[in-house]
Amino acid sequence: MFDVLERKMIVPNLHQLTVLAPDVAKVIEPGQFVIVRADGNGERLPLSVADWDRASGALTVIFMEVGASTGRLAALMPGDRIPTVVGPLGRPTALDRFGTVACIGGCYGIGSLFPAIRALHEKGNRVIAFMEARSGYLHYWQERLAPYCQRLFLITRDGSAGIKGHAGRIADVLREEAIVPQRIFVNGCTFLIYKASIELARFDVPVIVSLNPIMIDGTGMCGVCRVTVDGKTRFACVDGPDFDGRQVDWAELLKRRKQYVDEEAFLVHDSGCGRRHP
């Protein structure tokens, strides 16, 4: 069993959950994920890890409440215990000293990209970060990210904070500011990583996206997470979750992602990024 240390809603519908998982916290690297179950009867939910403390064993995820299972996670309180936190799964994000990097996070991806941003900064990269959301009240963790970013742009679709626009605007901003990224990282809902992959392909550098297909075991056993990348079938849980978004077969991925979700729920999760909270 794993102790819940903290659970709070940080912006409408997005929750920050910290659990005690020392074995995982000790070895996790940026870009990896865990699978959690909220209760003994629950589904296995893959969630990217947004922060950790190797010494105390605390592990933080940011998740969006979209359905039954995430709903159960959202009801957790400190002192509760959950039966499964397994990981770290997936390959760590390949980090290096690239020079200038553009890091784009939206929805839970703002949090899940934070470890990579921190590590990229520590490796001596010039980090240009973008926080994407529908509206300004959906941004979070600015103060956490800021120390590691040379520039931190806010983008909102309704223009309520920072630049007005969506993922497509990012390419323009980079050009206007004469920033030439040597590598681009994008985390967030499927819609964002898909859009960004298309729009940013013109920079002719890898657009590393963290894919989030449906998963069960997370160890390469079931094959439900298969995606086509560069014409080949890959298992996102063991070969990814990071891939070059320019090579991903998005049409296929978008359809597979929808298998167990009715149209409406999918839209809420993947492009609403913050269903208005009651």
Binding site: E43, I216, C222, G223, V224, V227, E252, Q259
Partner: peptide, 18 residues
């Protein structure tokens, strides 16, 4: 990779383990 195509492992795991 169409929807509705499963590996035996996925199908049986969904049914048994899950």
């Amino acid at each position: 990779n169409l929807n509705g195509v499963y590996s035996a492992n996925e199908y049986l795991t969904r049914m048994n383990l899950m």
